Amino acid sequence: MTLPAYLAAALCEIAGCFGFWAWLRMGKPVIWAIGGTALLLCFALFLTRIESETAGRAFAAYGGIYICASLGWMWAIERARPDRWDLLGALLCIAGAAIILLSPRSA
Score class of each variant (00 low, 15 high):
R25D: 07
A60S: 05
C42Q: 09
R25T: 10
L47Y: 02
M74F: 09
S103T: 14
A98T: 12
G35C: 13
L41I: 15
L39F: 07
L45P: 08
G16Y: 06
W21D: 01
A38F: 14
I94R: 07
G19V: 03
G72E: 03
I94Y: 07
I34Q: 01
L101S: 12
A97N: 05
L24M: 14
A55D: 11
L92Q: 04
K28E: 09
C68E: 08
G89F: 14
R57I: 15
F46L: 06
L101Q: 15
G35A: 12
G89K: 11
A44K: 10
Y6G: 04
R25I: 08
F43H: 13
G16D: 02
G35M: 12
R84N: 04
K28R: 15
G19E: 03
A61F: 00
L39P: 04
E51A: 15
V30E: 11
M26E: 15
C68I: 11
A97P: 00
Y6N: 07
T2Y: 03
G72I: 14
L92T: 00
A44Y: 08
T37D: 01
T37I: 14
A107H: 13
G96W: 10
A90W: 04
M74Y: 08
L41Y: 15
I50W: 02
G19W: 02
A22V: 13
L101P: 01
R25H: 10
I14R: 06
A60D: 01
G36D: 00
R79S: 13
S52R: 08
L11E: 05
G89N: 12
A97Y: 06
A15D: 04
A8V: 11
A22I: 12
G64Q: 02
C68T: 15
E78W: 08
G96S: 09
A9V: 08
F59P: 03
S106V: 15
A55P: 02
A69W: 03
F43Y: 15
W23R: 10
S106G: 14
F20R: 00
G27Y: 06
L3D: 00
A9D: 01
L91P: 07
A80T: 14
G89E: 11
A15C: 13
A69V: 04
